[in-house]
């Protein structure tokens, strides 16, 4: 049995749940709106991040999207029905992750460009240049996708949306925020911090924009591998 039917089924599941479409819309709205708000009050120290400041809110929506898409399988025996239709768990999980990644990337890139255009019009003369702006827009899309996948992997391990969000949201809002301000070195390698280097005009840490995204990609890959391993090993 080929991969395409499994992917098709997972895509139908995503587009037919209003909460998932809502989360995708929230990625765009939250990022663009909070960026525009922040840009009205920005200084000149980091013009690119003045444009993309809202990603801190957008990535919460991305996490909600990845978590909800997976968590819906862990209620009411839904996964039993899913795996009785696609018994190859590895293939099913790749299909699920792809069905999460593709719309997240599309919406993420759209968010990046919309946010860039909005930010440039708000900032006017102090706006970042086009080459930095493009890097930021692409980085924004990739980072949001990776955060959705990171959450999806974690939700598969924890088998619950509630548990996943109770881990990730405090982590983003408190741990990463506080630890990030306290110590430079290690905190730069946290999943949400590393990927966001691409959204700053300059960087002084170990990670640059692309190596930062690579670190976040490693986090996402690790979470997905853990999810795949848990899925393979356990009875459902």
């Amino acid at each position: 049995m080929s991969f395409a039917p499994a992917l098709h089924a997972e895509w139908i599941k995503i587009r037919t749940l209003r909460s998932l479409l809502g989360a995708l819309a929230a990625i765009l709205v939250a990022t663009a709106a909070f960026s525009a708000l922040a840009a009205t009050d920005a200084d000149d120290s980091d013009p690119l991040f003045s444009v993309f400041f809202g990603i801190n809110f957008g990535q919460v929506a991305a996490i909600a999207f990845g978590t909800t898409a997976v968590a819906s399988e862990f209620r009411g025996g839904a996964l039993r029905l899913t795996l009785s239709a696609v018994p190859d768990r590895g293939r099913w999980f790749v299909a699920k992750a792809t069905a999460i990644a593709l719309p997240a990337l599309a919406v993420g890139l759209l968010t990046g460009f919309v946010t860039l255009l909005v930010g440039r019009s708000v900032l006017g003369a102090s706006a970042p240049g086009w080459s930095a702006g493009l890097r930021g827009a692409v980085g924004c899309g990739v980072h949001l996708t990776l955060m959705a996948l990171f959450a999806a992997g974690l939700a598969t391990v924890l088998r619950s949306g509630m548990a996943t969000l109770s881990v990730l949201i405090p982590f983003l809002l408190i741990v990463s925020f506080v630890v990030g301000d306290l110590s430079g070195g290690v905190a730069d390698f946290l999943p949400d911090r590393a990927g966001q280097v691409a959204l700053h005009s300059g960087w002084d840490g170990t990670l640059g924009p692309w190596s930062g995204l690579a670190v976040t990609a490693l986090w996402a890959a690790a979470a997905l591998l853990a999810g795949a391993w848990s899925l393979r090993r356990r009875d459902v």
Partner: peptide
Amino acid sequence: LDAGAAHGSRTARDH
């Protein structure tokens, strides 16, 4: 197996 396998927010047809 489980009557609760269909997601409550989806229509029967989409399920």
